[in-house]
Design a protein around this nucleic acid. Sequence first.
DNA 1: ACTGTTTCGTGAAACGTTTCACCGAGACGC
DNA 2: GCGTCTCGGTGAAACGTTTCACGAAACAGT
Lengths: 344, 344
Amino acid sequence: MGPSMRAVADRAGVSVATVSNVLNGKASVAPEIVERVRAAVESLGYVRDNRASRLRSGQSRLAGVIVPDLTNPMFAAFVSTLEHLARLDGFDLVVVSARNDPAEEAARLRSIREWRPAGLIVLPCDGALGERLPPGLPAPLVVADRIPDDPRFDLVAVDNGPAAAAIVRHLAAQGVEHCLVAGTDLAISNVRERWEGALSAARGIALELIEVGFGDHAPPAFVARLSGPDRPRALFCLDHETTLAAYRLLAERDVRPGDDLALASFDEMEWMRLVAPALTAVRQPVEEMAECAWAMLGRRIGGDAAPPQSRRLRCAVTFRGSTPRQVPSRPREAHRTSTGGRRP
Amino acid sequence: MGPSMRAVADRAGVSVATVSNVLNGKASVAPEIVERVRAAVESLGYVRDNRASRLRSGQSRLAGVIVPDLTNPMFAAFVSTLEHLARLDGFDLVVVSARNDPAEEAARLRSIREWRPAGLIVLPCDGALGERLPPGLPAPLVVADRIPDDPRFDLVAVDNGPAAAAIVRHLAAQGVEHCLVAGTDLAISNVRERWEGALSAARGIALELIEVGFGDHAPPAFVARLSGPDRPRALFCLDHETTLAAYRLLAERDVRPGDDLALASFDEMEWMRLVAPALTAVRQPVEEMAECAWAMLGRRIGGDAAPPQSRRLRCAVTFRGSTPRQVPSRPREAHRTSTGGRRP
DNA sequence: ACTGTTTCGTGAAACGTTTCACCGAGACGC
DNA sequence: GCGTCTCGGTGAAACGTTTCACGAAACAGT
């Protein structure tokens, strides 16, 4: 163990209470004594023990974040901004990745309580968060990104429906008549909302849904649907995992996005702007979401007891070369696609 | 505050010491009493307070991780695996992103000590980690990914030199005679080692170095070098940031990797396999690195006092379409590039 | 019946802080 | 010269655990 306040006090020739006062700037202390204490701290290399400090004071200045998967760049960005904001407010963050496993999420939710966090920010694996929560909320909880069945919590998410609708309207306007819509799992609120939003805008365009799950490999049904001779002319992926799986699959099958298949995606990532043609995609405002979540949590920690609030942030939809007009005779405005006739 | 052990003890009609024994399975307790205590815990919804527990026991079962930038998918993956491993050993993780700022890194390094972590895993911003460390190591520290000037710590990193050499040899074999080598900053050990590794293999190929820094936009010198009429026929980027900047730049300037410029990269990412032509790249074994770091830290926490160890993990180098043979007349084996004549 | 030994459980002392009531000593008003 | 403040500082009681020495049975061996 390092030196304790006791050691500092002895060396400075004062009482522990005074050391505490100096360190926390609580009571007024004579400048000369402040100096002595500072010097003692310095020379001993004293570091406060937060465990004792927080235990006694009842404060925790610690927040927990639980994300479904830290490997997903979106969630990583979320945590990163959150971590920064938290630090500005003097909070530390315990970060947990549930690895897309509700059981692990539940376990972590339980174990994190032992640290007595001042607040929790949870991006749930699925909608059934309420059931997994230990009875009796241990601390203020803000739910982000995914919508739980349980309305007890503050919520910040994006407006999935309208964004998906915008994509579908765009596809229809480009002349697409039939579109395959793929997502990992409709049990995830975002995916469900996106599908419903797409449906709501499906005028003059036929939509067909397929769930592909989280597995490392695309399920046979998906593969078959995309490689058969009657494969759709357009594909709208409702989340990043699906887009990635589809993009790989298409490359293997030598189906070129843009040329052979209109491709649009939710969850815009850097690579979607780098590939050629670039992908039409919906970008979620992750940073803004993190800011909002932290602000909400801050208010709750501050004691605000207003009824649960729910905020929806607007997504940015960008149309790019992967969804060109569907009239082969007219020259395309598509970005960086070859002019055709490339297949042997 | 929630119920304490006192409350549980009262309800079960035993002493706090017994409750503690039951909860920790330390001393032998009569089965009937165990049951009573369990029931009391259950009905009160008791949760242990780690602050008190760890304070008294002197254990911490808490580890800190400091990464330069959580937004970087490599570091996110590192933290993710680490978090998982830690949890398997019953450790919690305090995660900190230094946002590429040595000052922030230093600040966090200082403040994290207040939690009395059992150990620290640090991926330093630069080589000068030693200077920023508070005097007197507070806990075992394992350095990962980047090599500090200070040899006091256990280290796990990748074999940058050989991997870079492999890339350069490959380029030479493909007929490249002159290659521009770009990296953010030679002050970063990885970048330096890669450059040196490249140099060591530069037989029959001229290498030219440029540092591009971390800014959001590529510096003018880089832009000029890549767009001028005498631009090099090959580019080797020494880190992900640089590759990204270069790739964007090339796209704007309508210079096609593979066709117009051989392009190889360190830090393979998903998108490099998705673009066409796919990028020749060096993949770092992040997961393995995390496993190794955790294992090392585990040994130190266990009390191993052997002299600092240093491990280098092997990178995987994959040659892809972005570095085709440099003989224009012969048909290329390149993957998914058009057959030429595309420029108006 | 007298020791040992084992088993099961308890009281109380830590751990390192914060906080609160209190105290001595000047300063001040009258 | 006497109360009354304020200022600066202190001792000691918490906070919720773990741990340790110790006791009270119960049981076995002589």
